[in-house]
């Protein structure tokens, strides 16, 4: 049962506004004039079948894919193709396939997330961002010295999330966090995402599985053939079942 609901998060200040976003690769159009806005503290799911441009939206918003159209982050117009600008202003991408540094240690992977705001290893290691990220994933504790490439898929996804957390994100764009992960691990990851969202972080979630995405999201952007076909505000499973 889908009902529209006025959530408090539907009104606050806009964190991310995307309008008329298009992404093309050669003559292949991956995304055509997608538009949506994300309110601060909200969780938005971008759903749709595979190969319909969801990931391209995430990549383009983060500045990693060539784009046309306007992306505004906290009211500022973001320059295209400049991921550094985005990261330094608090929009952090947790990409599909994680994109870790396989031959660096887990700890190095996570501390490199701090590169967004510091050049000092000492302040990175002592920062709250890193310790908080490690608290979220206690499983990583014993593996900090291990090379990231030797971890299992689920643990690698945790490292990717921890690395994103270390960047002091205000908006997290998470692309297919559960791709190739077993059901139990996916559930655990979703619990973490929910916790992050409760702490006030804005989350943009790219997800193939709409059921899973609905557990968490205030707003759903449905993408088909590179076009945003529907933007809706169904009630979250979290709100429905939790009663709060």
């Amino acid at each position: 049962m889908v009902r529209f609901q006025e959530t408090s998060s539907g009104e606050g200040p806009v964190a991310l506004a995307v309008s008329e976003l298009s992404v093309t690769y050669g003559d292949f159009v991956a995304v055509e004039r997608a538009s949506f806005r994300v309110t601060e503290g909200e969780c938005v799911a971008i759903v749709g079948p595979n190969g319909n441009g969801k990931s391209s939206i995430a990549m383009a918003v983060a500045g990693l894919a060539n784009r046309r159209g306007v992306v505004e982050l906290f009211g500022e117009v973001a320059p295209a193709n400049d991921p550094m600008w985005m990261v330094s202003r608090g929009l952090v991408l947790i990409p599909e396939r994680r994109q870790l540094f396989p031959n660096l240690s887990v700890l190095d992977n996570i501390t490199l997330g701090c590169y967004a705001w510091t050049r000092s290893l000492r302040s990175a290691l002592r920062s709250e961002a890193v310790s908080e990220a490690l608290e979220f994933f206690p499983q990583l504790g014993p593996r900090l010295r291990q090379k990231a490439g030797t971890l299992s898929g689920g643990e690698q996804q945790m490292v990717a999330l921890a690395r994103g957390m270390a960047s002091r994100p205000r908006v997290l764009v998470i692309d297919e966090p559960c791709l190739g992960l077993a059901e139990a691990v996916s559930r655990r990851l979703y619990q973490v995402l929910a916790a992050m969202n409760r702490q006030g972080r804005t989350i943009v979630l790219v997800e193939e599985n709409p059921v899973r995405a609905l557990e968490l999201s205030h707003q759903v952007v449905r993408v088909q053939n590179g076009v945003t076909v529907e933007v809706s505000r169904p009630a979250r499973a979290a709100d429905r079942s939790g009663g709060a």
């Binding site: 991956a30 190969g51 990931s55 391209s56 990409p95 599909e96 396939r97």
Partner: peptide, 9 residues
């Protein structure tokens, strides 16, 4: 074609 869309060659 999520991350690496086919490019026309």
């Amino acid at each position: 074609m999520t991350s690496s869309p086919p490019r026309p060659r």
